[in-house]
Design a protein around this nucleic acid. Structure first.
Length: 292
DNA sequence: TGCCAGGAAAAGA
DNA sequence: TCTTTTCCTGGC
């Protein structure tokens, strides 16, 4: 289902009129992206797809600064999932009392569609890690191997391409603060160097096959695979079970001693092809409210 | 199947 | 200041 939205050009900027369920804090604080930061003016600046993007809300309008209609249609429309009607998803999920509460809390969430290679490396780093440190590691990797770009007089760095990372050694990666995950990142780089289309191939698979393909990488377990397929491969039956979702599920649905694979199966069976959305609402609700 | 090591820094006490 | 926890995976 897609809903028509009015898109306007205003000087150098794109204005998407009257967007519902689109809140910048919800989108960038729900743990799916690591390269966006809030500015003093209330906008968010991030690096994605080789450029710096600044986004701001004005009423219910979304402004994308310095962006042509062509670029918007080619890249950001899909990235911000503009054509999806989230009220329809919330309508279906809110029959469940817990989800009703979680959806109301995080009603501005959108699941971004990011670059599979960047997401794969980023979520390998995320394993048993915390967000400030994950962000720092990704910044260091970008500074070291990415391309320097400028926005409003400030320096930014693109996330490196596979070719830019081909010389990276385990030791170099360790210097970026990724710790024991360095060898997993190194092995993933080698694997992608051998077959540069491997992530696109995996992306084209059905959801379960996609998950199987991803967990074959060192450093990618069930949780990280679910994140990669949900945030960069459009696989919405994914149900990443991290510490917060586990807490939320144990709090609201299942017995305290249930294993992670069982929680994952429970979530996927319960929410079907909306599992990924349900997970995001639950995760955000649980973490922001510090539920036990 | 279940347990635990594995960076280092944030968050909590 | 010190201790615990951290969006978990691999290997035993």
């Amino acid at each position: 289902m897609s809903t028509y939205r009015e898109i306007e050009i205003n000087g150098e900027d794109i204005i998407i009129k009257e967007v519902q369920n689109f809140d910048l804090k919800d989108i960038f604080d729900c743990g799916q992206a690591f390269r966006w930061n809030k500015t003093e003016s209330g906008s968010y600046i991030g690096v994605a797809f080789d450029r710096v993007m600044e986004v701001k809300k004005r009423g219910n309008d979304v402004i994308l600064y310095d962006c042509s209609m062509e670029e918007f249609n080619k890249t950001w429309r899909e990235y911000f999932d503009i054509d999806r009607d989230y009220s329809e998803i919330i309508e279906k999920l809110r029959v469940d009392e817990t989800l009703k509460m979680a959806c109301e809390f995080g009603n501005g969430i959108r699941i971004l569609q990011q670059d599979p290679f960047e997401l794969t490396i980023s979520f390998i780093i995320s394993a048993n890690n915390q967000i400030p440190r994950i962000k720092k590691s990704i910044e260091r990797i970008s500074e070291r191997w990415g391309r320097k770009i400028y926005y409003k007089g400030n320096e930014y760095f693109t996330f490196p391409t596979i070719d830019e990372l081909k010389e990276a050694e385990v030791q170099d990666l360790e210097q970026c603060g990724v710790g024991f995950r360095a060898k997993y990142i190194y092995e993933t780089i080698q694997k992608v160097l051998i077959d540069k289309e491997i992530l696109n191939t995996i992306k084209a698979f059905e959801d379960d096959e996609c998950h199987k393909g991803l967990v074959e990488f060192k450093g990618i377990g069930p949780k990280v695979a679910d994140c990669i397929m949900l945030f960069s491969m459009g696989k919405y039956s994914a149900f990443p079970v991290d510490v917060w979702v586990k807490r939320a599920m144990m709090h609201f649905y299942v017995a305290p001693d249930v294993t992670l694979p069982k929680i994952r199966k429970f979530g996927r069976d319960k929410f079907g092809n909306l599992a990924g959305f349900a997970q995001q609402y639950l995760f955000y609700y649980a973490r922001e409210n510090n539920i036990l």
